[in-house]
Amino acid sequence: MERVYHPEPFDDDRVEVTGPEAHHLTRVRRVAPGEGVELFNGLGDVVRGRVDRSDRHRVEILIQCRIAPRPEPSAQIALATAVPKGDRFDWLIEKATELGVHRVIPLRTQRSVVDPRTTKLDRLRRLVIEACKQSGRDRLLHIEPMLSWPDLLATYTEGVRLIAHPGGEAIGRCGTIATVILAIGPEGGFSDEEVEQGQELGWKTINLGPNILRIETAGLAASAALLALNLS
Rank of each mutant, 00 (worst) to 15 (best):
M1I: 13
H6C: 12
H6N: 11
P7L: 08
P7V: 10
P9L: 12
F10E: 02
D13R: 15
V15I: 15
E16T: 15
V17H: 04
H23A: 14
L25S: 03
T26L: 08
R27K: 15
R27C: 10
R29F: 11
P33E: 08
G34D: 07
E35L: 08
F40S: 09
G42S: 03
L43D: 15
L43C: 15
L43I: 10
G44Q: 11
G44W: 11
V47N: 01
R50V: 12
D52Q: 13
R56H: 13
R58A: 14
I61Q: 03
I63T: 01
Q64L: 15
A68F: 09
P69Y: 10
R70P: 10
E72F: 08
P73M: 06
S74W: 01
A75Y: 03
Q76R: 15
Q76N: 11
A78I: 04
L79H: 05
T81I: 00
V83Q: 03
V83M: 05
K85S: 10
G86E: 11
R88Q: 13
F89A: 01
F89Y: 14
L92P: 09
L92H: 05
A96M: 05
T97K: 04
I105F: 08
P106D: 09
R108Q: 14
T109Y: 01
T109A: 14
Q110L: 11
D115S: 12
P116A: 05
R126V: 14
R126F: 09
L127I: 15
E130D: 14
A131W: 05
A131I: 06
C132P: 07
K133V: 05
S135A: 09
G136A: 08
L141H: 03
I143M: 09
L152H: 00
Y156P: 02
T157K: 12
T157A: 12
E158T: 15
V160L: 12
L162S: 04
P166W: 04
G167L: 12
E169M: 14
I177P: 02
T179F: 08
A183S: 09
G185M: 04
P186A: 05
G189M: 10
G189H: 04
V195N: 07
G198P: 07
Q199L: 06
N207Q: 13
L208D: 03
L208E: 02
L208F: 02
L208Q: 02
N211P: 01
N211A: 13
N211T: 14
A218P: 00
A218T: 00
G219M: 03
G219W: 00
A222R: 04
S223L: 01
S223Q: 07
A224F: 00
A224W: 04
A228C: 12
N230A: 11
L231M: 13
L231Y: 06
